[in-house]
Write a protein that binds this DNA or RNA. Structure first.
Length: 437
RNA sequence: UCCCCGGUAGCUCAGUUGGUUAGAGCGGCUGACUGUUAAUCAGUAGGUCGAAGGUUCGAGUCCUUCCCGGGGAGCCA
């Protein structure tokens, strides 16, 4: 049985009548007296393998009947068309070789609680829903990189170990760095990507970022993946245009290539099909007015200068049928590096992209051009300019107008798949009270 | 850090006003069955009721403290 190569289950509908070998794991197991049904997954798809005692003999039939959930096997048989099969085919087994046993597999076809499933995340990954989510995550990541590549962006990998806080001193994971004191896990690659932009024009980083926030919500992870493009000679309007085209491209790609997975997850495809530019834009001031008009106890009205909370973002995002930009926030509640609006210096040229029913997926801004203003902002934010010498150099030597943004991969995957929690959008999530497995 | 909810069989849960020997479904195991789709049927094993202390004739149930988990807020992507 070791001579002919294995074929993918995905390819079986094109091989009706052929005798093939497949290898994989048993996902469902139904044995009758002289007939056994084994549903086998190989990563590309699933197929029902039909084992008949008359065809394979007593010993092989008993071995097949004894296979438990998630045991692995190699099966050889004939691909048969069958109208009862979801894929249209099944495998009439001629011989079968168990590979790895699977006694007491803890995850059953019945319901389980979140805590139990997260405790068994390494096994939960094998279930059909997780399988679909991870394939969509892959498609999102690949689509992002394809889009940016086609737009002339160079991938620019930024450091994960950094010497100081990029945006603030709290919320950082610290570690010892030889004799040089503390190092911190990056909570953004943005400042470094600005240096890359000055060299390559259009760059992006794509990697894990770390936030030691004590957040316990369905939107937060302590370790998450973010893509952060940065482009020279792009202003605020150009920045928003890039964002809406990128997100639309990603969603369209998922609809095109992962429709089966989205359907399995019961995602409302019409909501995804509406994701096309241009996205509506409202200002922070507009947002406050809309909130005031609909204020409730859970979503209190805000006075100018207060930041939007999660309930406000959900409310605003639900006012539109596609993602919406909320732009021009007060400078005081935003990061130090954001460019003031020349027409109104108390607000900055930034925007958050809120996805319907969810909230922020992208945050971005035009960056400060002028070295003196940047230095002043560092002081106002209580940051030590000495730690930012290299960042100030970027303005000292050939500063250009530039903009960038960060998109959270898990949040994008969550919204596209319709999941309820970001921890399912990454293979192994890192949350406040769980680091196992 | 704050607020809310939960912890009973491997899993998901029920357990009345405090009352005798703690229950169900699923899963496991044994057996039957040649077309099953979460197969069905019969039988069977399986419990430190999160922990400690307290009240009581009597605690899964009431009280106190602690531990663990879930959701939300703040903060953020």
């Amino acid at each position: 049985m070791s001579e002919s190569p294995l074929v993918s289950i995905e390819s079986l509908p094109r091989r009706i009548g052929a005798t093939v070998r497949v290898g994989g794991w048993v996902t469902h197991h139904r044995a009758k007296g002289k007939l056994a049904f084994l549903v086998v997954r190989d990563g590309t798809g699933t197929v029902q393998c039909v084992v008949s005692k008359a065809d394979v003999g007593d010993a092989a039939f008993d071995a097949a009947s004894a296979l438990t959930i998630e045991s692995s096997l190699v099966a050889e048989g004939e691909v048969r068309a069958d109208p009862r099969s979801p894929s249209g085919v099944e495998l009439g087994v001629k011989s079968l070789r168990p590979v790895g046993a699977s006694p007491d597999y803890p995850i059953t076809p019945k319901e389980h609680g979140d805590a139990f499933l997260m405790e068994h995340r390494h096994l939960w990954l094998r279930s059909s829903r997780q399988h679909a989510v991870l394939r969509i995550r892959h498609e999102v990541e690949r689509a992002v990189m394809d889009f940016l590549h086609d737009e002339g962006f160079i991938r620019f990998d930024t450091p994960i170990l950094t010497p100081c806080a990029a945006e603030g001193t709290s919320n950082l994971f610290a570690t010892e760095y030889f004799d040089l004191g503390k190092a911190y896990l990056a909570q953004t690659g943005q400042l470094y990507v600005e240096a890359g932009m000055m060299s390559l024009g259009r760059v992006y980083c794509f990697g894990p970022t770390f936030r030691a926030e004590k957040s316990k919500t369905r939107r937060h992870l302590c370790e998450f993946w973010m893509v952060e493009p940065e482009a020279a000679f792009v202003d605020h309007d150009g920045n928003l245009d890039l964002q809406q085209r990128m997100f639309s491209f990603v969603v369209e790609r998922c609809l095109e290539r992962r429709r089966a997975e989205l359907t399995l997850l019961e995602r409302d495809l019409a909501a995804l099909e509406r994701v096309k530019p241009p996205f509506p834009r409202i200002t922070y001031d507009d947002a406050l007015a809309r909130i005031a008009a609909a204020a409730t106890e859970e979503m209190p009205a805000l006075s100018w200068g207060e930041d939007l909370g999660a309930p406000h973002e959900v409310f605003l995002s639900n006012q539109f049928d596609r993602p919406v930009f909320v732009e021009r926030y007060p400078a005081a509640i935003k990061a130090f590096y954001m460019q003031p609006d020349p027409a109104r210096p108390e607000v900055v040229l930034c925007a958050d992209m809120l996805a319907p029913g969810f909230g922020e997926i992208i945050g971005g801004s035009q960056r400060i051009f002028d070295e003196a203003l940047l230095r002043r902002r560092l002081e106002e934010h209580g940051l030590d300019a000495g730690n930012y010498r290299w960042y100030l150099d970027l303005r000292k030597y050939g500063s250009v107008p530039h903009s960038g943004f960060g998109m959270g991969i898990e949040r994008a995957v969550l919204w596209i798949t319709g999941l309820s929690h970001v921890r399912e959008a990454i293979p192994f999530s890192r949350t406040l009270y769980r680091i196992y497995p």
